[in-house]
Each structure stands twice: as C-alpha cells, then as structure tokens.
Write a protein that binds this DNA or RNA. Sequence first.
DNA 1: CTGAAAGCGCTAACAT
DNA 2: ATGTTAGCGCTTTCAG
Lengths: 335, 335
Amino acid sequence: MTLPAPPTLEAVAARAGVSRSTVSRVVNGSPRVTPEAIAAVTAAIAELGYVPNRAARMLASRRTQTLALVIPEDTALFFSDPFFASVIQGVATTLARTEYTLTMLIASEEAPEKTARYLRGGNVDGALVLSHHRHDRSYTQLAGALPVVFGGRPMSNEHDDVFVVDVDNVAAARSAVEHLIARGRRRIAHIAGPDDMAAGLDRVAGWRAALDAAGLEPAGVESGGFTVAGGMAAMSRLLDRVPDLDGVFAASDSMASGAVSMLRERGLAVPSDVAVAGFDDNFFAVSTMPQLTTVAQPSVELGCAMAEQLVRLIEGEPVERVRMLPTSVVVRAST
Amino acid sequence: MTLPAPPTLEAVAARAGVSRSTVSRVVNGSPRVTPEAIAAVTAAIAELGYVPNRAARMLASRRTQTLALVIPEDTALFFSDPFFASVIQGVATTLARTEYTLTMLIASEEAPEKTARYLRGGNVDGALVLSHHRHDRSYTQLAGALPVVFGGRPMSNEHDDVFVVDVDNVAAARSAVEHLIARGRRRIAHIAGPDDMAAGLDRVAGWRAALDAAGLEPAGVESGGFTVAGGMAAMSRLLDRVPDLDGVFAASDSMASGAVSMLRERGLAVPSDVAVAGFDDNFFAVSTMPQLTTVAQPSVELGCAMAEQLVRLIEGEPVERVRMLPTSVVVRAST
DNA sequence: CTGAAAGCGCTAACAT
DNA sequence: ATGTTAGCGCTTTCAG
C-alpha cells in the first residue's frame, strides 16, 4: 500500500511560478496578494490536487484546527442516549462548515489526567465537554488552560468562569410539573436522573418548586439513572411507597417510557390512573404508548451552539458566559 | 487566554540528562535503550508532565495516528439511528486503548471530492466508512489509496478488494422470515430499507429466499427508509394493497415500530392479526408494545471489529477481506 | 546503546 | 505585494 506522495506547497509554488509564501497566503486567504497571483496559485492547486498538510500547518502555526469532544467514561450510557447523538450531530454539522476538525476523546478513568494532559498538551485548540459529572473535576480545572465549552452546567461550584450552553432545567421541569398540576394531579412523584449531574439535580429542584408553589406535598423521588430499566425500577419503588400517586414527572423520556411500562405491568392506566410526563422529546416520547407529554429541548441546536461558542472563543470573538436555549412543554396523550 | 507553553521533548532530554533522540526512543518504546536511561527519561516525563506534540510527531514520522470516521451527508438519519451510535461506541472505545485518534468527517455532497482529498492528502492513516450508499462512489475508489474498512458491504461491484466488516444480512433476514413462517404466517410482507444500501437490498433478498424455500408468494414490499414514520407509511400502503396479510418483516426495528403503530391505528392486533418482526434489536424493539421479535446484530462489536481491522491494516498485519459477525433471532411478543 | 544532524511541510516575521 | 529566512517539535538515518 504505497501512496504516491501528496503534492506539497512547494510543488504548487513551482508550478504557479511564485514563492511558497505566496502560495501560503493564497491558501490562507490573505488579502495582500494580487489577483493574478491568486489565479495562478489557485490553478496550480487544482491541477495538482494539492491539499495542505495539517500536521505541518499545525506545527508551524501553533494552531491545531482541532477540537476535542470529551466523552465521559461510561460510553454505553452516553452512546445509547439519543440526546447525546443529537448534540453530536449539531456539533459535527456546525464544524463541517468551518476549518475545524472534531476528535472524540473518551475520558478514561484509569488515567484520569491522561485526557487532561492530552488536551493541555497543545493537541487541540479547544474542548467540548458533555455530560459533566461531579467527579470529573479535571475538566473544570481545564477551563483555565484551554478554551472549553460545557454542554450543560458543570458540577462544580469552584468556577463560575466557564462557558456553558444549557437549558433552564429548573424552569423547564417546573413547567412540566405545572402542566401535571393543571391536569388536576395532586400526588406527583419524580423519577430523577443521576444526582452527580446538574441536569438531574435541577430537574428535581424544578419539580419541587412547582409543587411548593401549588402548595402540594412531594409524593416521592426515586432515581432512575437516565435509563429505561432504571425508570421501570424507580416506578416500581415509587408505587410500593406511594400507591395512591396520580402523576409522575420523569427527568428523561427514557425513564418515563420505563415508568409507563411498569405502570401497565402493575395494572394502572396512563393517564387515567397516573399521568406521566418526561423530558427530552426524543423518539422514546413518540414510540411509547400512550405517547409522552414531555419537555422538548433543542438538542441538535445545543450542539450547534456549543460548537459556535467554542470557535468564537478560540478566535477571540466576544462570547457570552452562559447561553440558554429555550424549552417547551409538548402535550401528548400521557397526561 | 495565554497558555504556558507545554514542555517539549527537549526539556525532558535536558532534565533527564540525555539527548533528544534517547527521549524519543523511550517515548516510542524502542528496545535499544538502557534501563537506566529509560528510568531517567520516564521520571523526567512524569515530573514535567510532558505530552508529545502530535503535530510534530506526525510531521516527522509521516504517520498521523489519526483515523477518520466518514459519515454520510444525511446526518439526521445517521445520528438518529441507534445502530450507528452503537457502532461509533465500539469504534471509539476500541481506539481509546490504542494510540489512534478518531476524527469525524462528514461527507458533504456540495464538495464530494473535498472529503476524498482530505483523506488522500495525508491527513489520516486510514478511514472507516459507515452506511455506504450507492452514490458514494468516491469512497470505494479511495480504498486503493488509503487503508479503508467499510462497515457493511459497500454498494459497488467494481471493487472486490475492499475490507469489510458485516453481518450476513441475507441469512439473517431469511431466518427472521423463517421464524414468521414457523409461526404459521403465510402472507408475509416486507418493509424495506433504502434500495441504495446493501443492507436494504440484502434483507429484501433474505425475505424473498425464505418465502421461496417455503413455496410462499411474496405478499408485497414497501420501502420505509429506515425511519419510524417511513415504517408507518409503508405499513399503511401494504394494508391498502394486501388487506389480508398476516405477517410483516421490517428491515429495521424503527420501521417495525412504525408498522406496529399503524397496525394498531387500523384496528389490527399484533401478533394475533399480524405478526411483526424487525431487525437490529435496539431499544425500539423493547420499547414498542408488544416488544418486537427481531434479528439481533452485534452493533458495538461491529464498531470494535472495524477499528481493529483498520489498525491491523495500517500496521501491516494480516487482515481478512471480509469479517462476518453473527446474528440471531430474538423472539419476543410481536410474533 | 546513544548523540548529532538533517529534515518533515508549512507559517510568519522580516526584508525588499 | 512578494520573496527570504528561520524555525515549529519531533523522528530518523548515520556515526560513534
């Protein structure tokens, strides 16, 4: 498998009858080049099928044009969650329009600082951190050494100088629960996400806030770990503890879907016996029967926004610290 | 945002009291270094928190340690399919154990050859191509110029010299349909995938083969484009054309899920009126009610295998041209 | 087994 | 506006 050596900038220069610098300028879109030179170089590039060598460019310019997407250790959970798939889609498509390349970095917990070092070692221009857990302390520390944008508020109170794209999970959860209340539910339980993630905690808080405001007592919380199976188990425990509950707000559609299965298994009808609301508005919401009332969050756009923010940050443009994306309650048959 | 310059190999050499060459040898695991030297260098590396600069390494060694994951233009379909998420998970976790880095490359059809040129331009050591469509001709041509591994047989008869990891879609589909036949179904229709993808065509072929072998007539085929909505629409058309069908084999669980919804909408019971089998065994299979009988394919392992094959190919180890992974029929309530 | 020296292909001052 | 000159940080012959 011997590849013919790709043409170099030098070859282009020779062909176009100019110096390497000029070629470099054309390639990089410098304004200080005559139209004729541009034309000659462009032609030479096309004829030779020249592609700049990234490695050389990185080394010389000390910019890598590479962004890292940091993925938490628990890849199974991460990759099976459609929310993350959508976020990645947003990131990837946004970056496809730029000169930046995306590399996936799995944060291994065997070598927790290996990842951080790779990032700090000048191998990327910036990082996108998704699904930040409480124990992932290294990434918030990273934020001082490298442009970093978090998808979802990181779990750390030490730094308020990080860049974040997020939704208002408290308000969003609250509005979902308010919807349940408006439907006449009074004993509303919650199936929570992991308590080491901001999204999990904030949604609990929103649930509680809505109940408080309505003068209702919390009917119980169980954690479902953002999985279908976890949602089923949590629903089961809730029914054991609070047999007369009439509403459930789950922090994700996957858990809501599990909850609906468990309710059916226990002989309870949705929504007549128990109304169920979820969070995400992904295909769990529409493939569950009855289809789920849920909080829609713009996951693809979240990825787009993360990528945009990071690129701006790297290129020195002004960037707001926190960018909040809108959510909305989508009412379907489960409530 | 001024980053302190990361330590260089030169700094490590100074600290360890050896030459840069020796440090380089240690870093690259050369056997020709004394244990003392190794120890000194290792210590210096740890003290300094040295991380090799990838760009410099790439440039000097002419190896990039980077693999591209080529993603088809239609990112929405790609990212919303849990099959691909699993494959990526397999690829990413496998690569995490190696020195290779994964970059995601979206094949834009505006600049179809831009992608190919990037790949050929010496920017990656190899490429993984997933979800190959008939019109993606450039990638099969690529296979001569760069190590490439396809996930799923590519749609091209011009090249039989490509490397592929796949499942036997014909046999797998056939066994699913045989299961339907064994359940007593006689008028079995098919909801097909896109006909510009091998997986789509092969599953049609498997369906047909099973019917032929049993001496049954095909009850009809409609295409569902691998989406839930497409599955619903296809089911609807099938019912219009073949009102008395009693079995459906869908080429994906997402389409099977859509089919089940449509059957319910039309007042038909699953499986008593119509038995439904899918393909994939992802969460559509278990979140649809009734849960789907389906063909399980090892999607994470497929990603692992692709990554392994590509790395071997790059490193000159022997690699089988086609690696087939096993499938199995998982029987649930929908049949 | 180790060091010295010569680049890898490109960018970025600095001249002109 | 363009060319000249140095490197970027590392690997890799080639000597020793």
